[in-house]
């Protein structure tokens, strides 16, 4: 809790307490926590003296904000026009079916959070899948499943995350 409030304090100071910078502040908060924890949003609203509703409205309007913890890995599949033309809808279906995950959902074992995004700006390589920031080009249902099956187990990745954070 204490740590949390100092994190909010840091973020707020980073932007000179400027309420106009609410979105960057929330982005930083999400970058730190992986999602937007309810208590942190409350604390941020209080610190900035803005209604909590405003933060909730922002958090639910923009697709990149998450109100629930994410999985150990982040997987985005491009559903932009080009990727769609080249079959990304089928790939999405295959992933959802294989891992029993809904678009913008997280697998039950928290292995990964799956999001369908609109164009990642690498259209020449369509269909594109991005896993933890790494771009995979020309993916097919098979190759996508293979990549995801190769992801390290949730705990391992979490430990790696923790280690990284500690360093």
């Amino acid at each position: 809790m204490n740590q949390d409030s100092s994190l909010i304090e840091q973020i707020v100071e980073r932007y000179d307490r400027d309420v106009g910078m609410l979105i960057p502040m929330m982005q930083d908060l999400q970058a730190e926590c992986g999602y937007l924890p309810t208590d942190s949003l409350r604390a941020l609203a209080k610190r900035l003296n803005v209604p909590l509703m405003r933060l909730y409205a922002v958090a639910t309007f923009y697709a990149s904000f998450r109100l629930a913890p994410k999985g150990a890995h982040e997987v985005s599949l491009c559903m932009g026009t080009v990727c769609y033309l080249k079959g990304s809808a089928g790939i999405s279906q295959a992933i959802c079916k294989e891992f029993k995950v809904a678009p913008s959902g997280t697998t039950a074992d928290r292995l990964f959070t799956f999001t369908a995004v609109n164009c990642v700006g690498a259209c020449a390589l369509a269909p594109v899948m991005v896993v933890d920031g790494k771009y995979y080009d020309g993916v097919t249902s098979e190759s996508a499943l293979e990549i995801l099956q190769g992801l390290g187990p949730a705990e391992q990745a979490a430990q790696a995350d923790a280690k990284e954070a500690a360093e």
Partner: peptide, 25 residues
């Protein structure tokens, strides 16, 4: 400023709302 994943924020007034820290309407 980074967007938040909303296509409509490319529209001028929505973009400005977003820069003011509000939903991009």
């Amino acid at each position: 400023n980074r967007g938040g994943g909303a296509f409509v924020c490319g529209e001028s007034t929505a973009l400005m709302a977003s820069l003011e820290g509000r939903p991009g309407e």
